[in-house]
Every structure is written in structure tokens, then in C-alpha cells.
Design a protein around this nucleic acid. Structure first.
Lengths: 199, 199
DNA sequence: CAATAAGCGGACCGGGCGGTCAACTTGTTA
DNA sequence: TAACAAGTTGACCGCCCGGTCCGCTTATTG
């Protein structure tokens, strides 16, 4: 299918430079960082960006792919941990920590829904479902929460702290702890709405 | 200070039309809904928009002001409720419900930080702090959460459900319930980080 | 080292944006 | 109802964006 000969040495270097420059630029300026600025930051011409990524959306998709892949790898390793409850909490901690360093959540929504992104994302979703199933079977989370619930709540700690000016870089830990307490079996009240089918 | 004579009848009508048209347009298209589209939706010329609101940001600020004011009014009424715990939950429910109908959260961040917006927003913050203090004193929420915590967590239910395609319009209730369970005294674990000073 | 194609760069293009303005219309008032 | 100020309008401006294109440079290969 994609039987592509290896990139020329300089091209491969530029591709890597572009990906990190773009991630930095997006993290700083948000979704509408301009392609021209990204090129300047990477030290290449604007045309070079479009040689590697046909559109701005393709560039976004490539960044998103890397991140989801890395997170999935962490999740799969944690599936073999001894304590399923601690493993789930650790996964959420790593996810939030990754996101704290560079918040690229908005990229997910706009643009980057390639076939390949969808594939890798679904793999990651499966991994999380497995982590949650193990934790629930072990009694570490309440019986009425699902993998989908955790996938949605996963991003909340970073989101809420993003409203605080000059926040401590570890503030997200506080809200992860509160939300995780809400996921525990002790003192759980019945939920007023069924979980979504989707993710 | 702002001793402004009353608007002409048609001008007042157009102003109201513009505010609702803009709110609808922003809710549908997001932050970069164009001023031209807003004018078209309101049935007026583009120039009229800038007669009423000097810049796009001023328009945003006017919308934000309305919403925060409405929410604050609800909060103040709930300060007199019999059950402080139920009052806090009711406030969070109303806030999330308002936001579910039209999500304009992004407006807050970009543009709309006028002096007047800041003033009304701080009033609303005070109201929430009072609601939380009453609930804590009543034993309805854990001792280690503050008004600032609730102000941050307030928006989380809508945020997390925004990721679900074709979600039930009431799905946010599920996540408000989970998070509120995390705020209760029963089964609370110590929090790993102090609350922020800011909001 | 010579030949070749892969990669590079930046001037350039069309389009849509926020914002301006001067000619025109209309509500208000005495 | 006459006269004026207040309000309206849409063509227009400058700007910046994503994306194109073609002449030039350079890594690779036999």
C-alpha cells in the first residue's frame, strides 16, 4: 500500500523539526497558530511544511497520532500491573501529566480525524476500557461507572485548572483526586443518567 | 458618568436582535463566527453591529455580562434556601443546564475581560463562595474543598460531555453526580495539593 | 564525480476577516 | 409637519491566512 522509499536524510530531519515546532507553537498560540510561524520556528520555508503535510489538518493529525500512541503504550503496560485500582489511577495521572506539559486537546476536536487517527484512538479506548474493567472487578471503582465515563472524565482535571492564572503546575492533581474520589465505591449515590454508548 | 440618553426605539430593537443573534451564532459556529454572519442573522447591516459594539470583543463582553448576571441572580436566591447542600447542588445544576442549552464558555476566555465583566464576575464568585461555605458548615461537602474548587469544577460536566457525538442532552447530569459524590464528606481521601488562591 | 531526482524556499494568489465611512433613511421633537 | 439628530447601510480597505508553484539546491547513487 504505502510502499514509500526512505526519506532523504535532510527531509527526515526537517520532518522531525516541523513536528516539534508545530506542537510547541500550537501549545503556545492555540489552534490558529499560523503555518508561516511554525515554519519559521522550525527554521524552514513555508513550502517545506506543505511538502511534508498536504494541509494544516494533516499536520495536526500527525501530532495527535504521536500523542495518542504514546498514551496507549503506557496504558498497555499498566494492564499487567499488580493492583488494578492503582494502575487506573496511575494511567490517569500520566495522561494528565502529559497534557499539563503541552495542552493540545483542541487539536483532537478540529481537523485531526484521519482514518489512522481514528484507528489508534480506538485502540487507546479499548485499553482504557480494559483498565477500568479490571479496576471495577477488583472493587476499586464503583460498579456503575464504565470505561466511557473514565475516558470523558480523564481530561477534566487539566481543563478546570486551565482557568487559573499562574496556577501551580501540579494543581491538576487536586482535581484528579476529587474526581477519583467520586469514582470510588464508598459513599456512592445512584447516578441519574445511563452512560453514553459512544466512546 | 455614563449619562446616556435613551436609545431610539429602532436602535434598541436592533441591539436586542443583535445580542440574541450573536449568542446563537457563537453557540453554533464557535468563537470565530463572523460579524457579517451575525449581522445577517439579525437582519441588519454589518455597519450597525459596529455602531452598537465598537469591536467584536465588546460584543462578546456584552453577551458574557448578561449570562453571568443571570447566573448570579440564581445563586443569590439560593442563598436563602433551607437546605444548604441541596442549594449548592441546585446551583450547579442550573449553571450546567444554562450552559447545556448554549455553550458560550469560550467567549469568557477570549476577548471579554472588560472592567464591567470583571466586576459582575467577581460578584458571582462571591455568591458561590457563600453557597459553598454554607454547605460546608452544614456538613454537605467535605471540609477540605473551597469555593474556588467548586467554581473550577462547575464547568466540568458540560466540558466532558461535549466530546460525545449525539449525546443525550441530559448526559451532563451523570457527571455532575459523579463529581458531586467526590465532593461529599463520606469516603473522602486526603487531597494531594492545596486549593488555588485565585478565583 | 557526474547525473538525477528528491527536497527546498519564498514570492505569489484568492479569499475572508474585522473594521471604516459617507450617503441615505427614519424616529423624535417643538 | 418641518427640521434635525440619530441610526442604518453596504461598498470598501488593509491585513493575514492556507495553499500553490517553479526555479534553485543538495543528498544519493553507480
Amino acid at each position: 500500500m504505502t510502499s514509500t522509499r526512505p526519506l532523504r536524510a535532510d527531509a527526515a530531519r526537517n520532518r522531525r523539526l516541523l513536528l516539534t515546532a508545530a506542537a510547541d507553537e500550537f501549545a503556545e498560540r492555540g489552534l490558529d497558530a499560523s503555518v508561516a510561524d511554525i515554519a519559521r520556528r522550525a527554521g524552514v520555508g513555508k513550502g517545506t511544511v506543505f511538502r511534508h503535510f498536504a494541509t494544516k489538518d494533516d499536520l495536526i493529525a500527525a501530532i495527535v497520532l504521536d500523542r495518542i500512541d504514546a498514551l496507549n503504550a503506557v496504558g498497555e503496560k499498566l494492564l499487567e500491573a499488580a493492583d488494578p485500582g492503582a494502575a487506573l489511577l496511575e494511567f490517569l495521572t500520566v495522561a494528565a501529566h502529559q497534557r499539563q506539559q503541552r495542552d493540545l486537546s483542541f487539536l483532537q476536536e478540529a481537523g485531526g480525524l484521519t482514518a489512522e487517527v481514528t484507528r489508534v484512538r480506538d485502540e487507546m479506548f479499548q485499553t482504557v476500557h480494559r483498565l477500568v474493567d479490571r479496576a471495577r472487578a477488583h472493587g476499586a471503582v464503583r460498579a456503575d461507572v464504565t470505561g466511557s465515563d473514565i475516558l470523558l472524565l480523564m481530561c477534566a482535571p487539566n481543563y478546570v485548572t486551565s482557568y487559573v492564572r499562574d496556577a501551580s503546575p501540579d494543581l491538576w492533581r487536586r482535581y484528579l483526586a476529587i474526581i477519583f474520589d467520586g469514582l470510588r465505591p464508598e459513599g456512592a449515590h445512584p447516578l441519574p443518567h445511563p452512560p453514553p454508548a459512544a466512546p
